[in-house]
Design a protein around this nucleic acid. Structure first.
Lengths: 145, 145
DNA sequence: TCTAAAATTAGAACTATTCTAAATAGAGGG
DNA sequence: CCCTCTATTTAGAATAGTTCTAATTTTAGA
């Protein structure tokens, strides 16, 4: 089973997506989207920079950050922070979900929130607007030396 | 209901606690412990610095960080990071628990992990070693203007 | 073509933390 | 009591990740 299957979007698809959410589809933004909306798997800003540097003549780190903020505000991306790293991770999965950090590979794996039942009836005192869950673990199939 | 009732420890109690876990009870460490093991409610390094500056002649920020690491390694404290802040938060509650961020007050509130049931049977593929949960919410009793 | 607004950029600034290397303190042996 | 050894503390530099600033470039539209 794959973690997430994201068909690669064409440039036109990306232009449309951006227009749909009121974001001006500049060349830089399209380049960034080609990675974060398609190939990237929970990339960080520096991973995006590395990819973009190989596919776009010159694009500043400031634009990466500006664009990530624009896309997040527009609802095309989600930003996550986790205890194990000071960096922000960007996720194009817009469906509610949690994450598992595979401690062997360091990869983040999406966990459908519907597959976890969190009974929080205890919280009589509180209105809960949102919750984040992160699991730390590894594939059972993997065998250590 | 109080979030956590932590009786104030005497200096001798702190000295004993430190010795028990093999940590040399220096004046600086005792001063820091007086706050983090007692009065502090999920303090950050800078909050600890602010308190200590008022109760100890001169104590460097480096010592705060060194001591927090020492205490965390010794198992006297736990360090948490949350998505809403780049800072580390230190908690003297050593019992397994989750947190709720009260979005009105900005305070972190301990949630007994036993009061939440997380069914993770779905995770047939993974061995889960640890999980973190954070809720974002507010007191129901509070009424906005 | 002109203008105004939007986007991009390089580099400075900032925040939280860690590192470095020197100074100090404390324990134990003589 | 003095010496030495190690642990601890310290100030300040360094680092990492991100945001800010102000100048420049691009773009859309009149």
């Amino acid at each position: 089973m794959k973690n997430k299957v994201q068909a690669c979007l064409t440039k036109d698809d990306i232009v449309d997506s951006l227009k749909n959410v009121g974001v001006n589809p500049t060349a830089q933004r399209i380049a960034i989207c080609q990675f974060v909306l398609c190939q990237g798997d929970h990339p960080t800003a520096d991973e995006i920079k590395t990819w973009v540097d190989q596919h776009f003549p010159k694009l500043s780190l400031a634009t990466i950050y500006n664009t990530l903020k624009t896309l997040t505000d527009a609802g095309v991306l989600r930003e996550y922070k986790f205890p194990h790293s000071g960096k922000s991770f960007y996720d194009n999965n817009l469906v509610d979900h949690y994450h598992l950090l595979d401690e062997e590979s360091g990869k983040l794996i999406d966990i459908d929130s519907k597959s976890i039942n969190v009974s929080k009836g205890f919280l009589k005192e509180f209105t809960v607007n949102k919750m984040d869950v992160i699991f730390y673990g590894k594939h059972k199939s993997q065998v250590d030396g």
